[in-house]
């Protein structure tokens, strides 16, 4: 088990990639606070799942700023989430073989979902699809 700071956060790593990952979690976390809670408020308080359909998405994504918002949320959330899982693999998985297997699948899945998500947000054309 990695040692924890009093707060339950990881102590600040001293350098290298781990320090970048540690800083990224704090910075992306702060941005996600606004992006993710904003997304929830827009979709579930201002609108509702009753309204969400193809036409709703087409109208929303007609504005490139909403595409940018959704793409940024997607990238940050995926990287933040998968880096969190990576830390948990470090904490919980002991056997060397399982560690390698989990890390390889984790990086593979991260890449796959980053590509799928980006493609959907960036290439969607309502005319072609509808």
């Amino acid at each position: 088990m990695a040692e924890l700071s009093e707060a339950g956060g990881r102590p600040r790593p001293t350098g290298g990639l781990e320090l970048y990952a540690w800083v990224f979690m704090r910075v992306s976390g702060l941005l996600l606070l606004f992006l993710a809670l904003g997304h929830l408020a827009i979709m579930h308080l201002i609108h509702s799942v009753e309204e969400v359909n193809f036409a709703f998405v087409a109208e929303r994504w007609a504005n490139p700023l909403w595409r940018l918002y959704d793409w940024l949320l997607l990238m940050l959330a995926l990287l933040h989430g998968f880096n969190g899982l990576r830390v948990m693999v470090d904490d919980y998985i002991r056997s060397a073989a399982w560690r390698v297997a989990s890390l390889v699948s984790l990086y593979g899945l991260t890449f796959l979902f980053l590509v799928i998500g980006s493609l959907v947000v960036l290439i969607f054309q309502p005319m072609a699809g509808g």
């Binding site: 359909n53 193809f54 036409a55 998405v57 087409a58 493609l119 959907v120 969607f124 699809g129 509808g130």
Partner: peptide, 8 residues
């Protein structure tokens, strides 16, 4: 959400 690529 990816299903939007497959039409309405």
């Amino acid at each position: 959400t990816g299903l939007v690529l497959f039409g309405a």
